[in-house]
Design a protein around this nucleic acid. Structure first.
Lengths: 181, 181
DNA sequence: ACCGGCATGTAACGGGTTACATGATTTT
DNA sequence: AAAATCATGTAACCCGTTACATGCCGGT
């Protein structure tokens, strides 16, 4: 999915500036299945302007650059719908952490533990973040996607909690501290 | 994760040619969390050779290019371990299908159905593929990662089967064909 | 005092995907 | 007869990330 389509979609949720669009991908509704950075958003918005797919409303501000709020045009909405009407290719997963854990037996236990806990923590944070989103008046589509993300993250946390011993057996031992073994 | 590290990891599983490495990412043990293409594998192998991290054994063949089988050197194994000792950044999910389904209410029902079924089918195929892998003598690390993939795909299939109505309500109706409603 | 947030933008760099080039053999 | 598999490799292109440039305001 190219940056332009990503921006069009963001604007479907309401007018926004480049800065605000980035937040949608960082903490907002898109954060669970996409991301974007300034270096791709600003140029994308420029191109969309040139193509007449968005308009821009400049709000002068003191002490900081003007805030440029973009809005979709009818042409933009049509272009967005067209962009989504292609058949998406299969998702390509790309997990550095999993690649690393695949080779956990070659690595220092301390390192594996750090990666493991960090990965788990990331999933937990995503769940918290999902919990923090308001569900007022959102479309069934959005609810569906949110639920999907939730399902995934919860399954991941559960699996990692239950199967920690496979990669970190020694972490399981110190359960009873006064035992007579 | 850069292509060179990806190739080193592939060779940790055994000597292989570029062609075979690609298959590891397409159908093999890595297919669940990474991928790679010829355009990145062959140049990566060339660089690894130049750096002395792998050696190459050329097998002459009739009617097709010589098969170049690569093996890790000690230096290569050390480099691999070092590459994995950094702290991986958080996984970045990138799902075109989810992005599309997020906006399902804007799209033609037939298209949504096609995307939905295609997506689901992809997950089912991944599960089948996992079932087809032999578990003989694989390390706990590999078992862990495999289990993780399985957990994810099964949760995804279950969620999509149970919540289809959220995006495709009309598909639910024709359940009882002789009812008296 | 310093860091994080707000706010926009550019440029280099890196790297991966895609397409191209070649060609025999096996399967459908 | 066509398509897929085996097998390697190059090159252009795209495009995204990262770092840089600028600057104020509010909180610690």
């Amino acid at each position: 999915m190219d940056s332009k389509t990503l921006c069009l979609g963001a604007l479907m949720l309401g007018d926004a500036s480049g800065y605000e669009i980035k937040k949608l991908f960082e903490e907002g509704p898109f954060s669970y299945f996409h991301q974007s950075s300034f270096g791709s958003i600003y140029p994308a918005l420029g191109k969309l302007m040139a193509e007449g797919l968005v308009t821009c409303d400049e709000h002068a501000q003191e002490g900081r650059p003007d805030k440029k709020v973009y809005s979709l045009t009818d042409k933009g909405r049509a272009a967005f719908r067209k962009a989504l009407s292609i058949n998406p290719q299969r998702d390509r997963i790309r997990s550095e952490s999993m690649y690393m854990l695949f080779f956990a037996h070659l690595l220092d236990t301390g390192h594996v533990r750090k990666v493991y806990d960090g990965y788990l923590e990331g999933f937990r944070q995503n769940i918290e973040c999902l919990d923090g989103l308001s569900s007022d008046g959102i479309s069934p589509s959005r609810q569906f996607v949110r639920g999907f993300g939730r399902t995934f993250y919860e399954a991941a946390v559960k699996y990692m909690e239950e199967n920690r011993h496979m990669l970190l057996p020694e972490d399981e031992a110190p359960k009873a501290k006064g035992d007579k073994t």
